[in-house]
Amino acid sequence: MLRRLLSWSFAAAIYSVTGAPVLAGDCQRTRVDLRGSWGETGFSVEIADDEQERAQGLMFRESMPRGAGMLFVYDRPQPAAFWMKNTLIPLDIIFLDQSGQVTSVHENAEPGDLTPIPGGDQVFAVLEINGGLARRYGISAGTQMRHEIFSDSSAVWPC
């Protein structure tokens, strides 16, 4: 865990200092890249790809580096909704389909709010980042994500 946090912090620090993606062009398990008409950005991510990790998410965290996030991955596209129970920081919740295209964005989810935030019926992945960053970078429906989970022939931005 400490190693993961240190590499996460290091990558976030490089990104925030240089403003350029860390190791641009490489697909890495701990990194996502996003692009749209507004340009490109990237985040160092923790992966939540099993039921227990998805249930825990970012609960009880008091802060998160600006260039960091959590990528929730499902086995197949499915209905998904998130809530902010025991979440202490505002988050932007970015829902993606199996091709890696953003289908919807919920900005600045309120810490502690138990209201379900629906992502749709065909959610394959969800990216959580600090609240306000989606608007700052221009991330919206139609934005494309690159990550190794989107590496089949249907990927809009394959590795």
Rank of each mutant, 00 (worst) to 15 (best):
A12M: 02
S151M: 01
L58W: 05
S99E: 12
K85W: 07
N130Q: 06
R146P: 01
G69T: 12
G100D: 08
G142D: 07
G42A: 14
P21H: 06
A81T: 04
L2W: 09
Q52N: 07
D26P: 00
L71S: 07
G69W: 05
F95A: 02
A134W: 10
D50N: 15
A81K: 02
G100L: 04
S7H: 11
N86R: 11
D121M: 12
R35K: 15
D33T: 13
A20D: 10
R146E: 03
F10D: 03
S16M: 08
S140Q: 12
T103E: 04
N130D: 01
I149M: 14
P116N: 14
L133G: 09
Q122N: 15
G112D: 06
L5A: 13
G100T: 11
M1T: 12
E128K: 11
T41F: 05
T87K: 11
N108D: 11
F150G: 00
M84A: 00
V126Q: 05
E53I: 00
V123W: 07
L2G: 06
P116C: 06
N130C: 07
F60H: 13
E51V: 02
S7M: 04
Q56V: 01
D33H: 07
F43N: 00
W83H: 05
G132P: 10
R4K: 14
V45H: 13
Y15K: 08
G131H: 12
F82E: 00
F43C: 01
S9R: 15
L88E: 15
P79S: 15
C159P: 03
L96G: 02
I117A: 03
L96D: 00
P77R: 15
T115I: 08
I149H: 10
P65N: 09
M84Y: 09
D26F: 10
L34Q: 04
M64K: 04
G100M: 09
A13F: 12
G57I: 01
P111Y: 11
Q144T: 10
R31N: 06
A141I: 03
Y74R: 14
A55S: 05
G67N: 03
H106Y: 11
A11D: 03
L58K: 06
S9T: 11
D92T: 10
E148P: 12
R135Y: 12
R4W: 05
F82R: 04
S44V: 01
G132C: 04
T18E: 08
S7I: 00
D50I: 03
D121H: 15
V73A: 11
E51F: 09
E40W: 06
A48I: 03
A81L: 00
E62V: 02
Q144K: 14
G131D: 09
A141K: 14
I47S: 02
A12K: 03
P79Q: 15
P77L: 09
N130A: 08
E110G: 08
G120W: 07
R66W: 08
Q78W: 11
R66K: 14
F124K: 13
A134D: 05
L6P: 07
R31P: 01
S99Q: 14
E53C: 02
G39C: 02
L114Y: 13
R3M: 11
S104V: 04
G67C: 06
S153Q: 14
E62G: 09
G138L: 01
R76Q: 14
T143R: 06
F60Q: 12
Q28S: 11
F60W: 09
A68M: 00
A24F: 13
E128I: 10
R136D: 12
F82D: 00
M1K: 08
D113Y: 13
N108Q: 13
I94R: 06
L71T: 12
